[in-house]
Amino acid sequence: MLDAEPKPLVQVRNLKMYFPIHSGLMRRHSGDVKAVDDVSFEIRQGETLGLVGESGCGKSTVGRAILRLYEPTAGSVVIDGDEVPALSAEALRKKRPVMQMVFQDPQASLNPRMTVADIIREPLDEHTTLSRDEKLARVYELMDQVGLNRAFANRYPYAFSGGQRQRIGIARALALNPKFIVCDEPIAALDVSIQAQVVNLLEDLQERLGLTYLFISHDLSMVRHIADRVAVMYLGQIAEISPRDALYARPLHPYAEALLSAVPEPDPSREGARQRIILRGDVPSPANPPRGCNFCTRCPKVMPICREVEPRLIEAEPGRQVACHLVNPSPG
């Protein structure tokens, strides 16, 4: 994996996802919530890209728009050679097995009226022509893979703990041998002790099955643990994409810097020396983002140009892309 540069499995170009606002008596289209505004990145085969940012910055929307659970407003998403936004309904259905999703709330993402076996079997019912017994064998195999006791197959989701439910969700996502899985905050709703188990399971599966992840999270320590590269999002745009170690050692974008300064340090002696950058003000409304840089209203290092010209995401150092006038002094 380290030798030759693997080719990208997922390529996202200028993805935009606007949710229209209708107001007034005639429900006229009066504006857009720019949940995702011009986002581009790529994920190489077998890699984990962490996507971090504060609540409401559009992380989950990126994940859902990539899988076309929302219809993107504009932009291109190429997954394993296919232009996903352009696929017809039937072609998209055929494409679904390649890309799967693990959801945030394991309670809400499992139908309370289906047994575990039925839930894991649903993708098999939709996409394969196996016999009942073969499907059952596959369900058991999947349950083994994610560490669920086979004897639980007849139980309903309410009978499980959060971690076990998330395992069911992972088993369902794995059922069709996907190449790419969007993990939409898969650990946010779990206890800390369970989080590690689930993350280790995801890593383990990645190693065994050669999976590619888009790991959406607001837990920076977890992302540091699992991701190879990390994209930091702010208000619908990507502020910085860097390899994990480089980013955590020396963040380039002021927002990434502020975000990382908030991560607690386990070592007490170093924790005392940690300098927190406290951002003032609130996140602007995504319906009405500021002119120029989206971060200019709160940036501690703001310059006049930031309020006028929107910075573009440019390669600042090898392998690191940053959207900031400070880092890329000559705006292109």
Partner: peptide, 17 residues
């Protein structure tokens, strides 16, 4: 709007099912 319906869509289950 519940996630299990979204999950079914991400699996590719058609609307009628």
């Amino acid at each position: 709007e519940r996630e299990f319906v979204l999950a079914a869509r991400s699996i590719g289950t058609p609307a009628r099912r």
